[in-house]
Design a binder for these strands. Sequence first.
DNA 1: TTCACTTGGTAACATATGTTATCGTTTGCC
DNA 2: GGCAAACGATAACATATGTTACCAAGTGAA
Lengths: 191, 191
Amino acid sequence: MLFHFKDKFPQLTAYWDRYLPLQKRMEVPAKTVLLEEGKTSSNYIFIEKGCVRLAFNNNGTDKTVQFFFENEGLTSLESFLKNTPSLFTIETIEPSVIYALPKKHFQDLMTELSVEPGFADMILNIFAERQLHYMHEFVSFIRDTPEQRYQNLLNERPHIVQRVPQHYIASYLGISRVHLSRIKSALARKR
Amino acid sequence: MLFHFKDKFPQLTAYWDRYLPLQKRMEVPAKTVLLEEGKTSSNYIFIEKGCVRLAFNNNGTDKTVQFFFENEGLTSLESFLKNTPSLFTIETIEPSVIYALPKKHFQDLMTELSVEPGFADMILNIFAERQLHYMHEFVSFIRDTPEQRYQNLLNERPHIVQRVPQHYIASYLGISRVHLSRIKSALARKR
DNA sequence: TTCACTTGGTAACATATGTTATCGTTTGCC
DNA sequence: GGCAAACGATAACATATGTTACCAAGTGAA
């Protein structure tokens, strides 16, 4: 849920405790599909342990859009907000422990929260951050070569490179797995 | 301002009328720099007439991130929200008529608006849309070839292709202007 | 252990894309 | 009108990247 912003917005803590029982806790193996492409997203997912990817299928080839780890939350946003078929699949990469908050309770929470002072500011902050994140990704695509993009990943989010299989990373970078392999060996030779 | 959402959120209209006098109206020629990379963004810009781009300089090469047209608003968001040096330049493409709302008044407006019923919902909607926009751009990069991306532009936002010089579009698509020219002639041959 | 599956590396070749240079046209300005 | 700058097309060549195929190591389940 929004609860991954607990640290930044302490007023959320009380809500977290109260909404905890409404969430469904699940322990799932790797490669478990939590939301299937084409179905409507009806849960907000919070990751207690493990790692998850947001992906889609393009003419039989699998493409990864984003990776999520412990204490992060996600959903297929457009589907969740607009009740439309999800363009994306949500799938675990490692065996994971996740909490699912049904949409109905999510909406209740939003209603409750909206009277909280500073709520608008909080929403603005949270969404601005996400927007800036995607915008930076976009800028990286038009500015950097794939090799530079891989180096950025290594420098800024090394946990992704460490925990995620390489072919997922390749599709996330927008290149083939063969080319990512080439990039890695080129970098190794440079040192 | 947020006023480009007037149609979607009619409750904004009264505020628009009241804040209009606080905005600075400017008629500027093409290629006018409205915000320079490295300076702090202190205005929210609304376009009455003309067209504007958000861009940055990368080792001497100019890259365009986004295009804006009549009845759209923009700022260098990160700079505007966090008072940091802007990573981007804002520059007119055509001779334009723009309104600039100083940050101080923007903040006043937000404070006033926050008591308005449905405000949180409005903010969430606006930012969700922007987030989805950038996310779709990202997805397009990892899914489509440059040729497909150009066709998407032609189909979904033909006004951009019609009004914007080609080399800006090339950098926006993440390719060289020579390659965009090749793509165009390849498409022409196909028909 | 064995077996199937996943993961990651590499080679060879095909294709896509960048770079540089040149040319003709258009546009804006004096 | 004339000049400089912007714009867009194209060619030739260099480099980056995709595709297909093959191999080796690691992993997990029966």
